[in-house]
Amino acid sequence: MQTDQREADDARKADAPPAKTALSARGLTKVYGTGELAVWALRGVDLDLREGELVVLLGASGSGKSTLLNIVGGLDRPTEGSVHFDGAEITRFNDARLTRYRRDHVGFVFQFYNLVPSLTAEENVALVTEIAPNPMKPSEALGLIGLGDRQTHFPAQLSGGEQQRVAIARAIAKRPRILLCDEPTGALDSQTGVVVLEAIERINRELGTTTALITHNAGISAMADRVIRLADGAIQDVSINGHKIAASELSW
């Protein structure tokens, strides 16, 4: 039955006109250091994230995928190139506007969850909803990722998978336009990782949040709409995933 549902979704997507671009990056270059010591993390990367799609950025460590995500998420500035979002060039933003951009539009999920230990699950989510313009209720966000019964638990009382799901709830509770996940399953075993990916998939599907997911784990790319392979600071290839499978069917 689940499969039927997914097929129906795929059918709808196929029928729909080509989605709008949510974010576009052009000619992104990032160089650390200068002269002979210069390290090229990105060498002219172009990237478009379309509304509602789930993109997997695949690459070995050092391929530049995190640098790309950081620049797109407004955490870092490129040496050259630009990122446009909503008609504005975020790469020209000053610090305060970048903070605003992250606050209003971007949700982050980290490899190590980065929950605030002194706040309960619900409060960790509320941390974001309190400062966002149009958030959902913390309980609603937790409900979406299946942790409705864990609201009053502190991070120390939650398993790693549960902590990461709280982190996802925290990221999506503000109804971000873009959800950026940096190795969200990197610190988890595969079984727990699948549960977390299911949560991300569900958010992407039900809320239509444009999602970019970084991983070095090729197995995960099967759940993406598009897979972008990075190597040595450049995009190697972009493939549209014709046979998108549910996260629950993934294994590695």
Binding site: T99, F110, V116, P117, V128, A132
Partner: peptide
């Protein structure tokens, strides 16, 4: 530091 940096990443201002 890590906790505070996380907050900065998810959109908290320096003042906050």
């Amino acid at each position: 530091g890590r906790e505070l940096a996380t907050l900065r990443v998810i959109g908290f201002t320096r003042f906050e």
